[in-house]
Amino acid sequence: MTTLVNTRPPDRGWRLFLRTIVARAYPRVVGQQREKAWIFFETFLPFLATVGYIYVYRAMQAPEDYIGFVVMGGAMTAFWLNVMWSMASQLYWEKESGNLALYVMAPNSLMAILLGMALGGMFATTLRAVIITVLGSLLFGIQFQVSSYLQLLVVFVLTMTALYGLGMLLASLFLLWGREAWQISVALQEPIYFLSGFYFPIRSFGFAIAMSASIVPLTLGMDAMRQLVFATGPALGFLPVQVEVAVLLVLAVGFVAAARFWLSYMERRAIEEGTLTDRRR
């Protein structure tokens, strides 16, 4: 057992933070390759729902860009599902499997664990989103007219940062809970589909409801992306893209900062109350 001697001292500080992010992202990235059935179910099933909406719009003879709106909504659905099931309620599953105790007990930061989960999830989900977009575009002949690739990239990155920041915040808030967290995820899934305008322009709701729904980053993110990639996008958009970018920036910073604060607070409370390892008291 003499080989246990260190070749160099263990990393601490930001090096440990980065190591933890990479290590926790790894199972998600690799898991994607190992369980190819997941790709089928998590791509094919959302795609079926998307196709359903497309045929409804076709039957209604809606403007052709609506088909593109729906395909984009279908692609972004994958991210929302990932945030709800693999971020928000993930610590519940980690608690059930015994991983959470090991994460807390290790010298790393739980924030790095959450970031790793987010990055790994984002990577794996992007693949599904791309498949839905490409399939939908090819099957239904969607015409893209990108006005600015740079702005599109900025909007996408900000949307993902804010969305996964929200996921991290929810994961932190759910840390004290057991199965309730899972049930809240179930309860949130469909209303968010509806309110975020996955399958129609958010502008249809009117200003007050659309503004309220903008607390979910996908709402403004999708709206801005639709404005940037479809010819009729700007006419159907809710707010100017620049304003939506600014709001997304605020949401991204706000959610990540809030996640950091609540994670620290909830970890402390969970240790005091004994709920870190026990499913229910």
Partner: peptide
């Protein structure tokens, strides 16, 4: 889904081991 080695590597990373 991870192999024995991958799981162990992951936990080693959480402790800062190279």
């Amino acid at each position: 889904l991870l192999t024995v080695r991958e799981n162990l590597w992951m936990f080693g990373q959480f402790y800062g081991l190279d």
